[in-house]
Design a binder for these strands. Structure first.
Lengths: 200, 200
DNA sequence: GTCTATACCGTGATAGAC
DNA sequence: GTCTATCACGGTATAGAC
């Protein structure tokens, strides 16, 4: 309703897209203001500084990611555990093509985190819950009986998570690989069971 | 010898460190000049622009990485193939702590590549030879007879490469994980052979 | 309460003197 | 080969219009 809400929202949306496309530093407040249709200092009515606008966007992303990262695994079933885990990766690979903004902007925050403690703290939190959810998935697989309960189950899960995550990074650089095959290999290596026998 | 050589070299060294520590955009030419002990416009005698200085540093990195990426694998032997492959990863993990500059600066180029075609081109080249060398390692393992020759050997190698690479990224964010265990798991999953039997 | 006009200083960049 | 002077543009602060 309020004009204020509208302007605020528009600044955020415009900033998100421009930051993703051109990067934080090459996107000036004047450009954002022009696109929104206000004057440059007007942004300072809503945000104390450019840095604060950048931080605000990160906090928004932070919330979204936290939710996205946590859920899914309870829906995995005993019968098709492996296939469903594969599907999780395939979906992510496809989503990558759909929202090119997300990874471009997220990677910039990774960079900032290398020099800014508060970003660093939040990023490590995200990574931790990201990794944790993979551990939970595999432990769930153990519960279901489709996975052996080895002492290295945590390392296995983290390896899987690193592959999952880095597929996104490589896609970002435009490298054309058979990502589905890579993901399949990773899942397969963690769950040698399935159709193969894995008795000792 | 020449003063020219000296100044040039000093600019490069100072810029490399400052770019890594503060980032490209937050490092001004004035700061570099002050640290080198010259005036700001003097830098323009050696470089046409700030961007060109950044590009020059990348070209240097590019050469170094190309060499680092290509070599090693011929030294792997039949008897200790797995252990030596493990050692390769361990060394990289340790090196990460030694040269904090490298990854910080390299990641910035990854970001630039998302918006700049020429960086993108070179980066994809580096990634490609990086991935290729992992494929070669595993194919060498097949030759040695320590690895089965499966059709998925390429995907296996790329998976291994993604893990190897992303360990570096996660270390950068300051996340404290048992990276050696993760690497061990990755290598193990690719070479189930070794002491285990893997007959079908 | 919502914004514009204006001015300040630091930045990358250029021209020209020494 | 290096500096001084100068420029346009960037983020930022404030005064004040409505």
């Amino acid at each position: 309703m309020g004009n204020k809400e509208q302007t605020f929202q528009k600044i955020i949306e415009v900033a998100y897209v421009m930051f993703a496309e051109k990067g934080f530093e090459k996107t000036s407040l004047a450009m954002i203001a022009a696109e929104v249709g206000i004057s440059k200092p007007a942004i300072y009515y809503y945000f104390q500084s450019k840095d604060q606008l950048i931080t605000y966007l990160f906090d928004e992303l932070y919330k979204v990611i936290q939710q996205d990262v946590a859920v899914d695994y309870k829906e995995l079933s005993r019968v098709n555990f492996k296939e469903e885990l594969l599907e999780l990766g395939y979906k992510s690979i496809e989503a990558q093509g759909k929202d090119p903004y997300f990874n471009k902007i997220f990677n910039q925050y990774v960079l900032l985190a290398a020099r800014d403690e508060s970003y660093k703290k939040q990023l490590v939190e995200l990574e931790t819950s990201f990794l944790t959810s993979f551990v939970e998935v595999l432990q769930y697989g153990v519960e279901l009986g489709v996975l052996e309960d080895t002492p290295t189950i945590e390392a296995k899960a983290q390896m899987l998570a690193l592959v999952y995550d880095n597929i996104g990074n490589f896609m970002l650089t435009g490298n054309q690989l058979d990502y589905r095959a890579i993901w399949k290999e990773a899942v397969h290596s963690v769950i040698q069971g399935g159709e193969d026998g894995n008795k000792r």
